[in-house]
């Protein structure tokens, strides 16, 4: 019984850490937008990196995806889907962006 409540506390702490971290990153994201304005590429890059950090944080602390041996199959599934998705997204953006430039549609 004691060990169980110990495990319970530990798992709950995991969620609280994930929540606290996500909260800080969200505040940082909107804070940066508020203070510096959302006009320049540098600011947007910062916001993008903060978003990415939050994505990873939630994958680890909420969805429990990590490099532990037992959850590795699912990690492979996630990584492979992400790879396919990235090829599709970057391919779309690349091809259509290129087209737009050549057609002088001043995209991006």
């Amino acid at each position: 019984m004691d060990r169980r409540s110990e495990m319970h506390r530990r798992e709950r702490r995991r969620y609280v850490i994930g929540y606290g971290g996500s909260l800080l990153l969200t505040l940082a994201m909107f804070g940066v937008a508020q203070v510096y304005g959302i006009e320049t590429v540098g600011v947007y890059l910062t916001i993008g990196l903060l978003g990415l950090a939050q994505l990873v944080l939630q994958l680890v602390y909420f969805l429990h995806i990590d490099r532990r041996r037992s959850s590795r199959e699912d990690l492979h599934l996630v990584l492979f889907s992400t790879l396919v998705l990235m090829i599709m997204i970057l391919g779309t953006v690349w091809v259509l962006g290129n087209l737009a430039t050549r057609m002088h549609m001043h995209l991006m």
Binding site: V78, M88, L96, H106
Partner: peptide, 27 residues
């Protein structure tokens, strides 16, 4: 649960492609 992960990942593909379309449509 593993099966559900497969579903989530296919759902992710839908969202990912909608993101791609949105990016190309911003202008």
């Amino acid at each position: 649960t593993f099966g559900f992960w497969v579903f989530l990942m296919s759902d992710l593909v839908y969202f990912g492609l909608m993101f791609a379309i949105y990016i190309t449509m911003i202008d």
